[in-house]
């Protein structure tokens, strides 16, 4: 399986924010997208996820077969928001995504335990702290399986211990043959990640 971008360009509000971005990710590869604010990191991720149309260039997912014909069908997307309902319990939230996204992987309880949140499945999501909410959102990546993880500032709001936990999870995902593409300006603790620098001049 291979995620390939060729001369990708993206725009926001009619303004081009980046252009000519090419990369290729194979199984077990990680790509960190870095760069100053406004350099188009989030836009790039949204283009890859299929939420925004590419202004130019192509993004394809090779070898996914019938199951994952496009990048967006093969991807987990973790955006700035957590995608959880405050009125439902953590467990209800995760089980919803597990069922909705299909290809169930871990049970929601197992996924929570991986993020050190085994105790709080029965609590309404709204009661959690910012860091806990983020960890629940990360647990969502584990309840159903996708080869590609698209992560937009995944560690925002996490403390050092949780960051380390998350780094282990990402490492395990890569060793499993997964791919990770993360927009960040903090080191994620990935040992063998290529870096894609966005920003004026660097993107070309």
């Amino acid at each position: 399986m291979r995620l390939v971008a060729q001369a990708l360009a993206g725009e926001r509000g009619g303004e081009p924010v980046f252009s000519g971005v090419s990369f290729s990710l194979g199984e077990g590869d990680a790509l960190t997208v870095t760069g100053p604010n406004g350099s188009g990191k989030s836009t790039l991720l949204r283009v890859v996820a299929g939420l925004l149309p590419a202004a130019a260039g192509t993004i394809t997912f090779e070898g996914g077969g019938e199951e994952w014909p496009t990048p967006r069908s093969a991807a987990h997307f973790l955006g700035h928001q957590n995608g959880m309902k405050t009125a439902l319990t953590v467990d209800e939230n995760l089980r919803f995504w597990r069922e909705f996204k299909g290809e169930p992987h871990l049970e929601s309880q197992e996924a929570l335990e991986m993020m050190g949140l085994g105790e709080i499945g029965h609590l309404p999501f709204g009661y959690l702290s910012t860091g806990q909410k983020r960890r629940v959102a990360i647990a969502r990546l584990l309840v159903s399986y996708r080869p590609i993880w698209l992560l937009d500032e995944p560690t925002a709001g996490l403390d050092a211990a949780s960051e380390a936990q998350f780094a282990e999870l990402m490492q395990a995902h890569l060793e499993d043959g997964g791919m990770i593409m993360a927009a960040t300006h903090l080191p994620l603790g990935l040992t063998a990640a290529t870096e894609l620098r966005m920003g004026a001049g660097a993107a070309a």
Binding site: G116, L117, E119, I120, L123, P124, Y127, L128, S129, G131, Q132, A161, S162
Partner: peptide
Amino acid sequence: MRRMAARGAETAA
């Protein structure tokens, strides 16, 4: 109690 449990889970982790 649920709010306390949420906070408690934080310190335990």
